[in-house]
């Protein structure tokens, strides 16, 4: 514990700005992954333990596309689209067989896929760390805000993540397909009885969730070192986010992800050994005080 250092950082504007920005990008990437997770849980009632794998595969896919095309935009789009398609295949081939089954069966199948994909990544890309590097258009000097360092790439990440999250939230709230999705989350039998193809709907929702994780992986590729197994830590953290925010709530995921990102970035100064413990502590407190999370509906 070094609370003096933490106090010093909070009172210095440069440190405050630097740590807040780095907390925000951690939070935004986490939000994209967790939004997919919470969407899938909210509608399909499936806890997708393989969600971190989509993030990892998205990052590796972006890495390869960037190598070939030199276009970061194309790399991110490919990561999102690739994982969307992968999500459909995964849902149809495996998850569809365990709807309504014991959560342990779902866990087992997802874990098998995690193991397989981690090794496939090792075979295709190698076991060592890979670095995509910053795209040339962002290799510019950082901005200085109140003495703190803010790389332009971070601003892009935060904007894009917020835009995607906002788009998702608005789609769910305002459009017809959004209404159908919300209705299916509430009562799938009724939706099905009204003549809507819920099988197709489930596939689409799962694909959207997977796509969000893939996009997050692609967006993160320039600022993260890629390694097989990189999906796991983000999986655990996105579970914490979904639980704190309320399972099924996109807005809750956004707030919880930002809080977690800030705990991470300020924690490395104040309590470097215990940042993970702090996140779990917050999760326990939320679960005990309000099990449905900040924005969750009551548990049925």
């Amino acid at each position: 514990m070094d609370l003096a250092a933490l106090a010093e950082c909070v009172t210095s504007s440069s440190c405050l700005v630097t740590q807040t920005t780095s907390g925000l990008i951690v939070g935004m990437l986490l939000f994209l992954v967790a939004a997919g997770l919470t969407l899938i849980f909210g509608v399909l009632k499936i806890v997708n333990f393989a969600h971190g794998t989509f993030y990892m595969l998205g990052a590796y896919l972006a890495y390869s596309v960037f190598r070939v095309t030199d276009s970061y935009t194309l790399a991110v789009v490919a990561a999102g689209a690739g994982m969307g398609i992968f999500g459909i295949v995964f849902e149809r081939a495996l998850i569809a067989r365990v709807y309504g089954a014991n959560v342990l069966m779902q866990l087992l199948i997802c874990y098998a896929v995690v193991l397989i994909c981690d090794d496939l990544v090792k075979i295709v890309w190698g076991a060592d760390f890979k670095a995509m590097g910053m795209p040339p258009e962002f290799q510019v000097p950082p901005l200085f805000v109140a003495g703190g360092v803010v790389p332009p790439f971070y601003i892009l990440l935060i904007t894009v993540a917020l835009a995607i999250g906002g788009g998702l939230g608005l789609t769910l709230a305002l459009t017809k397909i959004g209404k159908i999705v919300r209705a299916a989350a509430h009562n799938p039998n009724m939706v099905s009885a009204l003549g809507i193809n819920t099988t197709l709907l489930y596939s689409l929702v799962f694909a959207t969730g997977a796509m969000l994780a893939g996009l997050a992986g692609g967006l993160a590729a320039p600022v993260r070192s890629l390694t097989p197994g990189m999906g796991f830590s983000i999986l655990i953290e996105s579970f914490i986010v979904t639980v704190i925010g309320g399972m099924g709530s996109i807005a809750g995921a956004l707030i919880a992800a930002v809080v977690l990102g800030l705990i991470r970035s300020f924690g490395t100064i104040g309590f470097p050994m215990f940042t993970e413990g702090m996140m779990f502590l917050v999760m326990i407190i939320i679960l005990v005080v309000k099990p449905s999370g900040l924005f969750g509906r009551e548990i049925v």
């Binding site: 495996l94 087992l108 199948i109 874990y111 098998a112 896929v113 995690v114 193991l115 397989i116 981690d118 090794d119 496939l120 090792k122 075979i123």
Partner: peptide, 11 residues
């Protein structure tokens, strides 16, 4: 490739 083999067996 322990994970690959174990994953397939679990599936």
């Amino acid at each position: 490739y322990y994970g690959l083999a174990l994953g397939i067996i679990i599936l």
